[in-house]
Design a protein around this nucleic acid. Structure first.
Lengths: 122, 122
DNA sequence: TTGACACATGCCGATACCGGAATATGATCG
DNA sequence: CGATCATATTCCGGTATCGGCATGTGTCAA
């Protein structure tokens, strides 16, 4: 019975599945910025930023695959909009560090207070 | 006089200069997680996560170049610790969207109130 | 139906990145 | 000093990613 081969190509989570990878690209962040004031058609983004149309389309595809934008067809145009709910992974990730930092500060605080108490006793 | 050549290799901000790229890699996020409870030596990270030592060292290098971790030598070990303050660019980026979203909600709210007011008049 | 418009997709070359293996550096100990 | 431990760095092959260009797809208008 042949030994099954493992998939060794796991280097980096695919851009299409990882929200963090999706925003790693500066141009994609610019595309998101372009949508910050509301729904916008692809052509509008293309002229706002000065990027090629295929480039914008491809970035929109990536952003939409991780849920950061959604698309709506209107005639022959496609209107994209932000999906702020899908920023949640970022919020969660950040919160983890804020919390850990605060706990460390709290421990530091308690430690300092304890030092001070011991000092007062003498 | 020869025409100077432009640098066409601007595709992606170098991983060493951009916090967004630094946290794009899942393994690097795991390294950050490993440091969340405080200072830790490289070897400790290597055994906590199960990554190779060179891999951990290289990720630590990237993280340190964007300021997300700092290093302190103690004997022949190197103790790394989080530097959460350098998540600020990421926090700012996220905050921009929260703000924009809130403003849109406020405008929506005002609009709805206006509609209601006009309804009350009739 | 034909053509024009708006956008998406496929293909390509160049580059960047990742991980493994081997090796270099630097501190400690005997 | 030589050996060993802890870590950093270098080299390399495989792969992913990006952007440009050309082309495909679907919609509207005449």
């Amino acid at each position: 019975m042949p030994i099954p081969e493992y998939d060794r190509s796991v280097a980096r989570a695919s851009t299409t599945s990882d929200v963090f990878n999706a925003i790693a690209d500066m141009h994609r962040r610019e595309v998101l910025d372009a949508l910050i004031d509301g729904e916008k058609a692809v052509g509008a983004i293309v002229s706002d930023l000065s990027m090629s149309q295929p480039q914008v389309s491809k970035h929109l595809r990536v952003l939409s695959e991780v849920g950061l934008v959604r698309c709506r067809a209107e005639g022959r145009r496609r209107l994209y909009r932000l999906e702020p709910a899908h920023l949640q992974p970022f919020r969660d990730w950040l919160a983890k560090y804020e919390r850990a930092l605060n706990e460390r500060l709290d421990r530091m605080d308690a430690y300092l207070k304890e030092l001070q108490r011991q000092g007062d006793l003498q």
